[in-house]
Design a binder for these strands. Structure first.
Lengths: 188, 188
DNA sequence: CTCCATCTAGATAGATCGGTCTATACAGGA
DNA sequence: TCCTGTATAGACCGATCTATCTAGATGGAG
């Protein structure tokens, strides 16, 4: 079963938005790269803004699903570590040039409240997943641990571009391991 | 002495680029907000791309100068900590909605090699300053410490938007203090 | 006073933008 | 067979984009 035109548009738009930015990517280039015609896009999406929102929503759902899948098979006490590793695998496969949600937040901050809120909610979702993992690992009494892990994972988004993928992932693991070890050693 | 037209343009463009993004900010809006005419802009800058480059260059020089000033007055052994604090003050004053360099990297990755290189170099400059501070504090044998501190500071850029300024700064300090304490305790 | 650099004012260029419209083709299901 | 939904092709719209041009105003330095 070949991908529907709508899926082709979503995949192509996601790639172009990520590689070239949102405002710098015109409708014409998207439909040309997707091999469809202009009206096909507007038949599936009300506007460019709606297309951007759909792209971000779909990408975020895939991201969250990969985190949840990793946590679901994590051994007891290893949920947080499994989540950090899953985040690293996501960077390796889909996010080598920075975070598309952060990019969207910047480009639409004063241009589309809906998209800005969507991207912000995606970040908040990641934080919530980290909090859930910390709770599952019994590390809940350590206030702020989830927030600090979140900050490190956010930093790794930029670090991969400057330090290179392998170095950034190794450093991410080192910092998160240190935070987790400290929290565990203080757990009653 | 009132600011020159060129300085007015730089300041106005920096504000609009930061608030609305680079591609979403047109020349007309910049000159109107700066209270000058379009030819004045093209008299001082060869193109919009040159204006963007000048804005980023000026902002980065101010950033680096504030880091160097903080390090210059830091007590012995406190250079790294002073640098982290200076970074936090910069976020509080000038960077409450994310990092403009990261935004520029995304918007110009496939659109202007010069600007992308400029933004990347700015990040590398921050990393170099952290390395210098670590060396000054005698923590050089700890491989990767500077990179890990860099990653945390990058993460705080996004964290301020999601967690709020005060929480993000407190968490940044907590993580960096932990990394520094661990490094110091292992220093021969 | 004169000269020169700067700034203003506004017209203009060509390209591209997001979005709409009509007419046509085609395939699958009732 | 006919109907409906989807896709194609391409013209078209007004707005906006970056950039250039000319002509005149202004003001400080020599």
């Amino acid at each position: 079963m070949p991908a529907s035109k709508r899926d082709q548009l979503l995949a192509t738009a996601e790639r172009l938005f990520y590689e070239q930015g949102f405002h710098a990517t015109g409708i014409d280039r998207i439909v040309a790269a997707a091999g469809v015609v202009r009206m096909t896009l507007y038949n599936h999406f009300a506007s460019k803004e709606a297309l951007v929102a759909a792209v971000l929503k779909a990408r975020h759902e895939r991201f969250i699903a990969s985190l949840d899948a990793a946590m679901a098979v994590a051994p007891p006490g290893q949920a947080t570590r499994a989540l950090v590793d899953a985040h690293g695998r996501w960077l390796e496969r889909y996010s080598q040039h920075g975070c598309i949600m952060a990019q969207a937040m910047g480009e639409f901050a004063e241009h589309s409240a809906e998209i800005h809120a969507l991207a912000t909610a995606a970040k908040a979702d990641l934080l919530a997943r980290i909090e859930a993992a910390v709770v599952r690992d019994g590390l809940v009494p350590h206030a702020g641990l989830a927030r600090r892990l979140f900050m490190v994972l956010e930093g790794s988004n930029t670090a991969v571009v400057i330090l290179g993928m392998q170095t950034a992932l190794a450093d991410t693991r080192a910092v998160t391991d240190a935070l987790l070890a400290a929290a565990r050693s203080e757990t009653p």
